[in-house]
């Protein structure tokens, strides 16, 4: 890759409700992206701790120095939408420390279906929901579900155990999103993660 193709580092947001699998997705994306030679850093957002950042740092998947923590101190959406200064500063600091970085993943703290990312902060953002959260989530038309660049439906393996009609849930998700992409994952096994990587390679890394 030439220098011009990596500047500025792509900033990709990952939002979604508590427990939907955002950190698990980050832990799957890191090795999948690194296998493709993507120079990577991560920012995690938590309420009043660095819990998720510590989890990623201890994972052994990435140099711990490449994982920054932002503590929102309030509702998580405030620091990814209303005033994303803390996250913008964290991303800029990672770019200064690691000049070749091509992609910065920004994981939001777990929030509700209304959370969205500011375009000032991210070039592309995905919203993660899971089948165990209920197959009515797409029908509720939350801004996160509708406006995200990519909707990820995680834990698809649990559908039969929680009484979810997965094909119907996905059809409803696609209907409310007006044709924008919806992908499925099982982050416990890694199923579906390559399709997300391909989406990022095309939309913001410009490798395809």
């Amino acid at each position: 890759m030439s220098a011009v193709s990596t500047r500025p580092a792509a900033r990709v947001g990952i939002g979604g409700p508590v427990g939907s699998g955002k950190t698990a997705l980050v832990e799957r994306l890191i090795p999948a992206l690194m296998r493709r030679g993507v120079d990577l850093a991560v920012i995690t957002n938590d309420l009043v701790t660095a819990e998720d950042a510590e989890r990623v740092r201890r994972s052994g998947l990435i140099d711990p120095a490449r994982v920054a923590a932002v503590e929102a101190g309030a509702c998580p959406h405030t620091v990814i939408r209303e005033d994303p200064t803390l996250n913008i500063e964290a991303a800029a600091a990672l770019e200064r420390q690691f000049p070749g970085v091509e992609l910065i993943l920004l994981e939001s703290g777990g929030d509700n279906l209304a959370s969205t990312f500011s375009r000032d902060l991210t070039d592309f953002w995905m919203f993660v929901i899971d089948v165990a959260g209920g197959d009515d989530i797409p029908r509720k038309r939350g801004p996160g579900v509708i406006r995200s660049d990519l909707l990820v439906v995680n834990k698809v393996d649990l559908a039969p155990y929680v009484g979810v009609d997965l094909p119907r849930m996905l059809a409803e998700a696609r209907a409310v999103r007006g044709g924008r992409p919806v992908l499925t994952t099982n982050c416990r096994t890694g199923e579906g993660v390559d399709a997300i990587v391909q989406q990022l390679e095309r939309e913001v890394l410009f490798r395809q």
Binding site: R11, R119, D120, F124, R147, E203
Partner: peptide, 10 residues
């Protein structure tokens, strides 16, 4: 218009 602010786009 909703994409204003992005620095990378296809």
């Amino acid at each position: 218009e909703a994409d204003l602010g992005r620095r990378r786009i296809r």
